[in-house]
C-alpha cells in the first residue's frame, strides 16, 4: 500500500470512528441496532455542506449535530411512545430522512464544496490538517463520552441495554434514557457525516447507504481484536475498529477489488463477525468430537490450551 493510501484510510478511519461511536451508543449501550444512522449520516453531511457553502463550516458541524439529535428523537418517540419495534422505527425515519435530506440540499442530489472555506481551512497550508482537525474532534468526543457514560445518567443509560426492567425497578425512566441515547447516537453520526462532507468536498444524497453496517462492523471488529474489559477499552476498541475496517477496505481495493463491491464486503464482514459465537461453538464441538474419537494427542493439545 502506498503511503498516500495509508494516510487517506487513517484519516477516513478517524472521521468514521465518530460515526462508529454513535453506533456503539445505540447498538451496545442501548442494545438497539438503529437504522436511522443511514439517514442521519447524510443529514449531517447535507447540513454541513449547505452551511459551508454559505460560509459557516463550523456552524455546519453544530447544525448537523442538532439535526441528528432531532432525528434520533423521532426514532425514539416512534419506539417508546408508539411502540414500534426499534428496527422498524429506524427504517421509517431513515426513509423519511431521504426526502428531508433532499430538501435540506435544496432539491439537488449532490453539492460540491470545491474551493469553499471548510473546517480544514483553519490550518491552511498545513499538510496534516485533514488529520489534526478530525483527531482533535475525536479526542474531545471520546473524553466527553467517557465521562458522560460514568455520570448518574450515563450509568442508567448503559443499564437500559442490559436490563431495562431493572432500570425501571430502581426508578429510572427507560423511555427517557432511550430517547437521549438514540438522540446522542445520531448526533455523533451526523457530526461524522458533516466532517466527511467537508473532508471530501462533496455531499451526495446516497452517501449514507450502508453506514449502519460500517458502524456495526467497526464496533464488532474492535471488540474482537481489542476486547471489552473496561469502558475506556470499549471506546478505544470502537475507534481502532473503525480504523482497521478502513485499512481492510483499502487493502481490498489495493488488491484490485472494484469500489462498487465494497458494500458486499462490508455486509459479509458484519455477517461473519456477528456469527462468531456460533462458529466458535461449532468448532469447539468438532474438536471435542475429534478428541473423543481419536483421544490422545487431541486431548493433550486441549489441556495445553487451557
Amino acid at each position: 500500500m502506498t503511503l498516500l493510501a495509508l494516510e487517506g484510510s487513517i484519516e477516513l478511519g478517524i472521521i468514521y470512528a465518530i460515526m462508529a461511536l454513535g453506533v456503539f451508543l445505540s447498538f451496545r449501550t442501548l442494545n438497539m441496532p438503529d437504522l436511522t444512522v443511514d439517514g442521519s449520516f447524510t443529514l449531517g453531511a447535507a447540513c454541513s455542506a449547505m452551511l459551508a457553502v454559505a460560509g459557516h463550516p463550523w456552524l455546519g458541524l453544530i447544525a448537523a449535530m442538532g439535526a441528528g439529535f432531532v432525528a434520533g428523537n423521532v426514532t425514539a418517540w416512534l419506539h417508546t411512545k408508539l411502540k414500534i419495534q426499534p428496527l422498524l422505527a429506524g427504517i421509517l425515519v431513515m426513509l423519511a430522512l431521504y426526502s428531508v435530506n433532499l430538501r435540506v440540499m435544496g432539491g439537488r442530489a449532490n453539492i460540491p464544496l470545491i474551493n469553499q472555506t471548510t473546517i480544514f481551512s483553519l490550518l491552511e497550508g498545513n499538510d496534516l490538517a485533514p488529520l489534526i482537525i478530525p483527531v482533535t474532534i475525536l479526542i474531545l468526543i471520546m473524553v466527553l463520552l467517557f465521562l458522560f457514560l460514568q455520570t448518574r445518567f450515563g450509568l442508567i443509560l448503559r443499564a437500559t441495554g442490559d436490563n431495562d426492567q431493572m432500570v425501571r425497578a430502581i426508578g429510572g425512566n427507560t423511555d427517557f434514557t432511550i430517547t437521549i441515547g438514540l438522540a446522542l447516537s445520531n448526533a455523533l453520526v451526523a457530526l461524522s457525516g458533516a466532517i466527511i462532507a467537508q473532508y471530501q468536498s462533496f455531499t451526495d444524497i446516497s452517501m449514507g447507504v450502508g453506514m449502519v453496517v460500517i458502524g456495526l462492523a467497526s464496533v464488532i471488529i474492535g471488540e474482537v481484536i481489542f476486547g471489552i474489559r473496561s469502558l475506556l477499552r470499549r471506546l478505544l476498541a470502537v475507534v481502532l475498529g473503525a480504523m482497521v475496517y478502513r485499512l481492510v477496505i483499502a487493502l481490498a481495493m489495493e488488491a484490485g477489488m472494484p469500489p462498487t463491491d465494497m458494500k458486499l464486503i462490508s455486509a459479509v464482514v458484519v455477517a461473519v463477525a456477528l456469527s462468531m459465537p456460533v462458529i466458535r461453538d461449532y468448532l469447539l464441538e468438532r474438536k471435542k468430537r475429534w478428541v473423543t474419537r481419536y483421544g490422545g494427542e487431541g486431548g493433550q493439545a486441549d489441556a495445553k490450551d487451557k
Binding site: 460514568q150 455520570t151 448518574r152 445518567f153 450515563g154 450509568l155 442508567i156 443499564a159 430502581i170 429510572g172
Partner: peptide, 16 residues
C-alpha cells in the same frame, strides 16, 4: 450506585 441514586436527580453528576 444506580440504586443509590433512586429518588435523586439523575443528571451529569459523577455516578460513583
Amino acid at each position: 450506585a444506580m440504586a443509590l441514586a433512586k429518588g435523586k436527580s439523575r443528571g451529569l453528576q459523577p455516578g460513583i
